[in-house]
Amino acid sequence: MRVKCVICDNLNEIPDFSPLAKKLRNRPIHTYMCPACHDRITEKTMARLATGKFRFIRNAVQEEEEF
């Protein structure tokens, strides 16, 4: 299956019967991101988390549930 990265517009090939291909076929709202873009975003997010000025909204909800 040919897929296109939503960030860098590179075309990649993934196996037709992989779980990712099935997810992309059955749920059009899901998008594909190439491994290079995924790794770059992960690194930048971890750098923001290390500053202490950035927090995930999901973490705030979990903290409220604990009270």
Score class of each variant (00 low, 15 high):
Y32K: 03
E65M: 10
E43S: 07
I57W: 02
P35V: 02
L20H: 02
A47F: 03
G52L: 14
F17A: 11
R55N: 06
K4I: 08
D9R: 09
E66T: 06
E63H: 04
I57Y: 10
V6Q: 09
L11T: 11
R25S: 06
K53Q: 15
V61S: 07
A50F: 03
L20W: 00
C37G: 05
K53D: 13
M33G: 08
R2H: 08
A36P: 02
R48Y: 11
Q62Y: 04
A60G: 08
K53I: 07
E43T: 13
C37P: 03
M46I: 09
I29A: 09
H30V: 01
A60M: 09
I7R: 05
E64Y: 09
Q62T: 07
T51M: 13
N59E: 15
A50V: 02
D39A: 15
F17E: 13
G52T: 10
N10D: 12
D39S: 13
R48W: 11
T31A: 12
I29M: 05
D9I: 03
E43V: 09
P19T: 10
V6S: 07
E63I: 07
E66I: 04
E65H: 08
E66W: 04
V3Q: 01
A36Y: 09
I41P: 00
L24Y: 00
K23A: 15
E63L: 14
P15Y: 03
Y32T: 00
C8A: 14
C8S: 06
E63N: 13
D39E: 15
F17I: 02
V61I: 15
V3I: 11
R25L: 08
C5Q: 07
P19L: 09
H38I: 03
F67S: 12
I29L: 06
A47V: 05
E63Q: 12
K23Y: 00
K4M: 10
K53P: 01
P19A: 15
E13D: 09
F67V: 09
F54M: 15
L24N: 01
M1T: 04
D9A: 13
N59C: 07
P15K: 11
M46F: 06
N12G: 02
M46K: 15
D39K: 15
Y32N: 01
P28C: 01
K4H: 05
R25E: 04
A50L: 03
P19W: 00
N10C: 13
V3N: 02
E63M: 14
D39T: 10
T42K: 12
P15Q: 07
F17C: 04
A36M: 13
P28W: 00
M46T: 05
R55P: 00
P19E: 11
E13C: 04
F54I: 06
V3S: 02
C34I: 01
R25K: 12
L49D: 08
K4C: 10
E64I: 09
L49H: 04
K53F: 06
R2P: 00
L20E: 14
R48I: 01
M33C: 10
M46Y: 05
R55Q: 10
N26G: 05
D9N: 14
I14P: 02
K22D: 03
E64S: 14
M33L: 14
E64A: 12
N26M: 04
R40S: 13
T31Q: 15
A36D: 11
R55S: 12
M33D: 01
A36E: 15
I14D: 05
H38E: 08
G52C: 09
F54S: 06
Q62M: 14
V3Y: 02
M33I: 15
N12P: 00
A47Q: 10
R48Q: 12
